[in-house]
Design a binder for these strands. Structure first.
Length: 253
DNA sequence: GGCCAGGCCCCAG
DNA sequence: CTGGGGCATGGC
């Protein structure tokens, strides 16, 4: 792990998590009820001695090899990888990912982050002055649809209510394969193909996932009109993250 | 001040 | 099974 590289800025703000803030070179979030705050230059020392964070930041996966394989396969992707290396896929709490991406539909990343914070401040545990954890299912089980609407959740409010009632389903997904787990998730109201893919990728590290949102559909049409996710196998998810992030921030190279 | 956003549900053909 | 309208809200 000593020379494992990570692009913290891109990893934490490429749309896979909505939990982090950055001021100057200081990163801050609440992970597993724990207030995590560090300066960029202290990151590698921190993850070396902290197993929970090392796992969260996915410091042991084969990013070097994956970046090499993907770069060799396609010049556009190679340019994106060079531009943003090394984005990691975080190991997040499936519950937070499920709710975050429920909120994501017909929405923008800025406002998803704001809604994530609203839920935390309204129902989560305060772990430090003014710093709130994302609420656990038990903290939301008696919240009504009207209360979620009053908090600005809009048409997603009923999805939140029914999802909270089904949250225990997440426990059973660890042992399922990708296809079976996705079937289970799509059974939840408000969870479709795309959101289920995101949950399985960001919450369960299924690196064969390939979420196709509006940005990725543009990318596929523009650069890969005759291809699909199999072109990027077995690293489809990582390719997707670079292509998505690059398209959002950089536009055409 | 319209337009649009990491979609999904629902209903018509 | 495929296509397209509707949906709450706020950032731009």
């Amino acid at each position: 792990m000593n020379d494992t590289l990570i692009n913290l800025e891109a990893t934490l703000f490429c749309g896979q998590t909505f939990a982090w803030t950055k001021e100057g070179n200081r990163y801050e979030a609440v992970l597993g009820g724990r207030h995590v705050i560090f300066e960029e230059q202290d990151f590698y020392a921190l993850v070396t001695e902290d197993a929970m964070l090392s796992h969260y930041f996915d410091m042991e996966w084969e990013y070097d090899e994956a970046e090499r394989v993907l770069s060799a396969r396609d010049p556009h992707l190679a340019a994106r990888i060079k531009q943003y290396r090394s984005i990691h896929i975080l190991n997040q709490d499936p519950w937070e990912v499920l709710v975050s991406f429920l909120l994501s539909q017909n929405n923008n990343i800025k406002r998803i982050r704001s809604m994530y914070r609203s839920l935390s401040e309204a129902y989560g545990t305060e772990v430090a002055p003014g710093v709130f954890a994302f609420p656990r299912p038990s903290q939301l089980e008696s919240v009504t649809e009207a209360e979620f609407r009053a908090l600005g959740m809009g048409f997603r409010a009923p999805y939140l209510v029914s999802t909270i009632a089904q949250s225990e389903l997440l426990e059973s997904l660890n042992t399922l394969d990708y296809v079976s787990a996705k079937e289970q998730l799509i059974g939840i109201r408000g969870v479709g193909e795309k959101v289920a893919s995101c949950i399985l990728l960001f919450g369960y590290h299924h690196m064969e996932a390939f979420p196709l949102d509006t940005w990725m559909q543009k990318v596929m049409k523009k650069y890969y009109p005759t291809k699909d996710k199999t072109f990027f196998a077995p690293y489809a998810a990582l390719a997707q993250q670079y292509l998505f992030h690059g398209e959002r921030l950089g536009g055409r190279l």
